[in-house]
């Protein structure tokens, strides 16, 4: 699905990613954990195509294509989805209009015709149930006046609508109460299949109780310093990141 090799990225003069290697296959769920400032969000931003970062070294192959050569919109059209840590409020653009535009531009990219309005609305109805999103929210402006939980549910709703191959969930658990977390996690679990993959980026182990990862990676100072199974997340939760910090500080 996605193969990241020796990825280095900086913002201005500051190098944030310093040689990331990661291989994610279809059907897998990977969790990337790490302390604040380790580069988690930078990784998701670089993969999604945010232009604030310079990739200085390394390569990323996504379904056989050179991901780094593609514009942000083409990455999305190729099936990459980033659930934002801080979903952006866009006053004046309705959720529905936004999603219809997105869906149809993705379809056009694949040589498909626009989805008929009736089918589109049926899809909205079906997918909004998945994250228990009030249908009224669909007609409101994108994320405007949404609570923190509604914003995150809206991200998963969009993911359900666009049906990506690879979903990167950037701190989707942050700012969620336990009920919202359950709803979001159950939505993600229902969307999981043998043909798609998920990367969960999180600070805490809590989310991983609900979405169980196949692999857990610890990111520290721009590198993956440790990888393992789901038990690694529990170990981190128990010990905290201090041990990692001590162990890898010297290597800095």
């Amino acid at each position: 699905m996605i193969s990241i090799k020796n990825l280095h990225a900086s913002i201005g003069d500051k190098e944030i990613l310093r040689g990331i290697n990661l291989e994610v296959k279809a059907g897998e769920v990977h969790a990337i954990m790490g302390p604040n400032g380790s580069g988690k969000s930078t990784l998701s931003s670089v993969l999604a195509g945010r232009e604030d970062y310079d990739v200085t070294e390394g390569e990323v192959t996504f379904n056989g294509k050179d991901l780094l050569e593609l514009s942000a919109e083409d990455r999305a059209r190729e099936g990459l989805f980033l659930a934002f840590q801080y979903p952006v409020e866009i006053p004046g653009v309705s959720n529905i209009n936004f999603l219809r535009t997105a869906l149809n531009e993705i379809r056009a990219y694949h040589g498909q015709e626009e989805m008929p309005a009736k089918d589109f609305l049926a899809l909205v109805k079906e997918k909004s149930k998945l994250v228990e999103l009030d249908s009224k929210l669909a007609s409101r402006s994108v994320n405007e006046g949404f609570s923190g939980g509604e914003k995150k549910r809206n991200e998963i709703f969009q993911m359900a609508m666009l049906n990506p191959k690879l979903a990167i969930l950037d701190e989707t658990d942050s700012g969620l109460d336990i009920d919202a977390l359950r709803i979001v996690a159950s939505g993600v679990n229902k969307l999981k299949s043998k043909d798609n993959a998920t990367i969960l980026i999180t600070h805490y182990q809590r989310l991983l109780d609900y979405i169980v990862p196949d692999f857990v990676h610890i990111l520290y100072k721009g590198r993956i310093v440790k990888s393992g199974g789901k038990e690694l997340a529990l170990e981190m939760e128990a010990k905290g990141y201090d041990e990692i910090k001590k162990e890898f500080e010297i290597a800095d």
Binding site: E73, R77, V88
Partner: peptide, 17 residues
């Protein structure tokens, strides 16, 4: 960026905004 990250091209995204 948010619009582009959902597959909406630069020009349509600008127009929407």
């Amino acid at each position: 960026f948010y619009l582009k990250a959902r597959g909406i091209g630069e020009e349509s995204a600008r127009k929407l905004l």
